[in-house]
Design a protein around this nucleic acid. Structure first.
Length: 424
RNA sequence: GGAGAGGUGGCCGAGCGGCUUAAGGCGCACGCUUGGAAAGCGUGUUUAUAAGAGAUUGUAACAAGGGUUCGAAUCCCUUUCUCUCCGCCA
């Protein structure tokens, strides 16, 4: 959520930014916000005046009662009914306009960073980096869902039986490889200075609101209606909400956390070949990194996160590329996002395995996540997060790219975690 | 799940219709004192929002929401969380 002060003072910048996103009716909405905000402020001032007057009278009444001048007190009491009436009308007006304002603010996405290219589809995302050789596979190479069956390491049909589509069962070396990857990612993140967190996997409404899943994206989360809780769609939600309603000191920066969690997504409406196998699941594992930064350092932090993920993919030896997302592909809350994609040789396509974003103060405004700056004023912090990394597609990439006639060769860095070097 | 007790500032803790401008303590910051430190003494120490160039001033906030009242931390209702005991349980 953008702040009112920012909208008031930067209308042109905002309109330019929203144009990069092809955001419709931008000017109309911004004008409405500015108008309603002006009304909100005058109403606030009026209400404060009435309340001040009525507080004053109440105090006088108190004094008269104490000194026994009951008649004078009663006389004043009559005056207060008018103030009460005015207070009621003004505060109703105020809460109404505040509700309207908030609804408008929820419609406005974050303003893209200057680097974000404008665009109409994922075709317009910029490839800014590519590394790793795309392997030449033997002629009997197959996609990962067939490999999973061949070596009996992931059972999709068993998941259908227990739960439904999108809930695979990992077995034997498949389960072990997955666990090895999680531990390896967590160790890499810890080495880079991230503190490991084990958050709850269920969140309440306030948390969903804080990171922007609520009020209108509840359809994408699984709900536990009886207790009014939601299963997390990503560790970002509980880990970022640690800092909801928090006032930090400048010396607290940078805050770097990492968490492994399962993630639950309803993915309503998805279907087809692109969601086959591990490509899109309702439950999947992910290791997330979350940073809270001073506004001056957030872009340097974003670069560090990108370098960190690069280093992991290099070690795993997977061919990957980095995209800078264009305006139309950029998430609602993000100012700048880099997507990492691994090339799946057997599917002959790129698979998204990480998405690293700087939200600037957009999330922090909703979270009320602030810090005391040098002037002693409170200022919104910047939040960033990224996957480091998402398991299923890394697994898919590993299986498909490292398959040989003899079996699937485990990367050297993982062998100490798996305890085996080939799946055959 | 049942019974009881509670939720007050960064922390502890008093207040239980107007003397609260939230006592007192701890912590923290600054100053005095000192060769330096400790102790002692003094001063200061919440957040949000509106107005103002600013110093400041107004308003709101004592778990949350609603109510009673001229006036609520204080009384009433609802919700929520914590603690103790019982029950259940990895």
């Amino acid at each position: 959520m953008l702040t009112l002060a920012f909208i008031r003072e930067n209308k042109e910048i905002i309109l330019k930014g929203l144009a990069v996103r092809n955001f419709a009716n931008a000017e109309k909405i911004i004008d409405q916000v500015i108008e309603k905000d002006a009304f909100r402020r005058t109403t606030q001032t009026d209400l404060d005046k009435v309340l001040a007057e009525s507080n004053k009278i109440s105090k006088e009444i108190g004094k008269f009662y104490k000194s026994g001048e009951v008649q004078k007190a009663n006389l004043l009491k009559e005056k207060t009914s008018q103030y009460k009436q005015e207070t009621k009308i003004l505060s109703e007006k105020l809460s109404l306009v505040e509700t309207d304002l908030n609804e408008l603010l929820y419609l406005i996405p974050n303003i893209p960073n200057k680097l974000v290219p404008s665009g109409n589809s994922e075709e317009d995302n910029e490839v800014i980096f590519q590394e790793g050789d795309i392997p030449k596979l033997h002629k009997n190479a197959i996609p990962h869902w067939e490999l999973a069956k061949k070596y009996d390491i992931i059972d999709f049909e068993l998941g259908n039986k227990i739960t439904g589509a999108g809930f695979p069962v990992y077995k034997g070396k498949g389960a072990k490889l997955q666990r090895a990857l999680i531990t390896y990612f967590l160790d890499k993140n810890a080495d880079a200075g991230y503190t490991e967190i084990q958050p709850p996997l269920l969140i309440n409404e306030a948390s969903g609101f804080g990171t922007g899943q609520l009020p209108d994206k509840e359809g994408q989360m699984y709900q536990v209606g009886i207790d009014n809780l939601y299963l997390i769609p990503t560790a970002e939600v509980p880990v970022t909400n640690i800092y909801r309603d928090v006032l930090l000191k400048e010396s607290d920066f940078p805050i770097c956390n990492t968490a492994y969690t399962p993630c639950f997504r309803r993915e309503a409406g998805s279907y087809g070949a692109h969601v086959r196998g591990l490509n899109r699941l309702h439950q999947f594992d992910k290791v997330e990194i979350v940073r809270i930064e001073h506004p001056e350092n957030s872009y340097a932090a974003l670069d560090k996160m990108v370098e960190h993920v690069k280093c992991i993919l290099q070690e795993l030896g997977l061919p990957y590329r980095i995209l800078r997302l264009c305006g139309s592909d950029l998430g609602f809350t993000s100012a700048l996002t880099y997507d990492f994609e691994v090339f799946s040789t057997a599917q002959n396509r790129w698979l998204e395995i990480s998405s690293i974003s700087n939200f600037e103060s957009f999330q922090a405004n909703r979270l009320k996540l602030r810090f005391k700056n040098k002037d002693g004023k409170s200022e919104l912090a910047h939040t960033l997060n990224g996957s480091s990394l998402a398991l299923p597609r890394v697994l898919a990439g590993l299986l498909e790219n490292l398959q040989t006639e003899e079996g699937i060769k485990i990367p050297d860095v993982l062998v100490k975690y798996t305890g085996f070097d080939i799946i055959d």
